[in-house]
Nucleic acid binder design. Structure first.
Ligand code: FES
Ligand code: FES
Lengths: 144, 144
DNA sequence: TAAAATAAAGACAATTAGGTCCTTAATTTT
DNA sequence: AAAATTAAGGACCTAATTGTCTTTATTTTA
């Protein structure tokens, strides 16, 4: 579904946002520990999130990553997915035809499309904040 | 979503079933041409389908692959997916936690699960015959 | 019986995804 | 100013997936 990089990106963003609520920056080391991900690999995907303006990075002692201001209310999970995996999740043909279209559909198209649209709806309508609150309240988890 | 191997498997099965309706066996060469897939690689996945009892293979002149009797009515797409990709599509955690469960859910779980269940429903409730009819009537396509 | 046609099987190669390491740059603390 | 701390960047490595090739086994046709 999502690539490993994208899974790490979403989990990392949630952790970073939860720290930002406490006005703390999250260091790469902390992030990798809290989401149980490979540090160097996670660093790469965080750079992409940073370049996409989803998170902000600061070098030096007490530096790290943060989600600025109330951005986590307006950042949608779809933006993270788009930054890391692109839009192929919503556009690819389920059976691998070169492109998914109404006028040259594969046999699965009509059945598959609603499911894919459902996925698109949830990622587009769920904000980073929405996912962060469950973590803060202890109802959801980022590792194991 | 599905692996390449699984995409080829579903497309191949649909073509084979459509030929079987005309009481013709489909040769590997024909299959690869009609679904536009790499011949040798497709052969591997057809062997798996054969070992899973979804299709039947016959060697020698006028041999090839077929879907026996009215099996295409009872074979569900889920069986093909299961034979090639296993059950991870329906069981994996969307954010990569070791396992998806209600009592240790990731932040995306509650939103993601309905979508995943939707996918599971369609593959479990769609028979090979269901997908073959659209091809036969010319409404759906297996390549390009 | 010999030849042709077909799938099965296994070794191998190429590509992509996932992951690591090392050096550099920027910032803060001492 | 020097040292420590942090992210950025690039080269590299590893594993999994995808794809190819060659040989063997089985069946039918001539
Ligand atoms: S054409 Fe295959 S999913 Fe749309
Ligand atoms: S725990 Fe992540 S999808 Fe269920």
């Amino acid at each position: 579904m999502f690539s490993k990089a994208c899974e790490y990106a979403i989990r990392a963003a949630i952790f970073i946002a939860s720290e930002s609520e406490k006005d703390k920056r999250a260091s790469l080391k902390d992030i990798a520990r809290e989401i149980d991900s490979p540090e160097a690999f996670t660093a790469k995907t965080l750079q992409k999130l940073s370049r996409s303006g989803i998170i902000t990075s600061t070098k030096g002692a007490h530096g790290g990553f943060e989600v600025k201001g109330d951005l986590s209310n307006t950042i949608m999970i779809s933006q993270i997915v788009l930054a890391i995996d692109g839009d192929k999740v919503y556009t690819r043909c389920s059976l691998g035809l070169h492109n998914c279209s109404e006028d040259h559909p594969c046999p699965f198209h009509s059945r598959f499309k609603p499911v894919r649209n459902g996925l698109q709806q949830i990622v587009e309508n769920t904000s980073l904040k929405d996912l962060t609150s469950g973590l803060v309240s202890g109802d959801t988890f980022l590792k194991i």
